[in-house]
Design a protein around this nucleic acid. Structure first.
Lengths: 125, 125
DNA sequence: CGGCATCCGTATTGATACTG
DNA sequence: CAGTATCAATACGGATGCCG
C-alpha cells in the first residue's frame, strides 16, 4: 500500500527524480542529520551541547542542518530570552518517528564496522 | 553492549570524528547508496537496469557509488565476457543485512512526505 | 551563549564526448 | 553494453570576525 503525495496526486516514489521524496531523502540521508537526530533521542539539548557531542561539526554546518531540520518539522527551537541566551533543541513527534530508522542505521554501522574493514582489506589485496 | 573497533581497540562510536564508523556513515548515508542498495533488494541488476531504475543518476555517480559499495563489501560485480558485455550487480550477505535499515529509511520517507510538506508550509507562513 | 556574514579553497557533481 | 576521460559548474565546508 503506497502513499500518495497529496500536492501532486502521484505516488510517493524516491526512484523518481522529480518526486519530492527525493529531496527529502537528500535531507534525511545526510551525515549531520543522522547524528543530530540521534543525539536528540534522549531529550533536549542546547546548541553548545550538540556542538560538543558531535565531534567535528562546524558551527556553520550545525546551524545550517538544525535550520533545515526545523523547517522539515523534525526539531523545535526554543529561545530563552535570558542573559546569556539559551536555545533548546528538541525532537518533534515527527522527529521522534524518524529516530527509529536513523538509530537502526547508526547501530548497523557501529555493529558492522569490523566486517566492512575486513571486506576492504580483501578488496585491497 | 557496544562493538569494539578491532583495528584500534577503541569502542565503535559515530560521534567521534576520528572513528572509522564516521566515514562509513558518510558512505552509507548517501542518496545514491540508499537507492542502489534498495534497488538491488529484489536480486541481480545490470548496469543499465540500475541506470534506468534510478532516475536522475549520472553514469559517473552510478559507477563511482557502485565501486565504493564494492570495496565496502556490499555488492559484487560480475563481468560476463560476452559481446555485448554484461555486468551483473548483486548484494553480498553484508549488503543484504544493510538492506533492512535502508529500506526502513526509504519507507519512512515515502510514508511521511505529506507530514513533512505540511510542516514546511507552517514554517513558511 | 548562540549565533550570522563573509571569504575562499576544495571536493562533488553534472554534461559531454569517446572507447573496448 | 558498460563504462572511462575530461572539463566546467557548484555546492560543501572551514576559518575568521562581529553582534545582541
Amino acid at each position: 500500500m503506497s502513499t500518495i503525495h497529496e500536492a501532486s496526486g502521484l505516488p510517493a516514489d524516491v526512484y523518481s527524480a522529480k518526486c519530492p521524496t527525493r529531496q527529502l531523502l537528500d535531507h534525511v540521508a545526510g551525515k549531520w542529520t543522522v547524528l543530530i537526530v540521534d543525539a536528540l533521542a534522549d531529550g533536549t539539548m542546547r546548541y553548545t551541547d550538540l556542538h560538543r557531542r558531535i565531534d567535528g561539526v562546524s558551527q556553520k554546518m550545525l546551524t545550517q542542518t538544525l535550520r533545515q531540520l526545523e523547517t522539515d518539522g523534525f526539531v523545535t527551537r526554543t529561545v530563552h530570552p535570558t542573559i546569556p541566551p539559551r536555545v533548546d533543541y528538541d525532537l518533534t513527534e515527527l522527529g521522534h518517528s524518524l529516530r527509529t530508522p536513523i538509530a537502526a542505521l547508526r547501530e548497523w554501522i557501529e555493529t558492522n564496522i569490523n566486517r566492512v574493514e575486513q571486506a576492504r582489506r580483501i578488496a585491497a589485496s
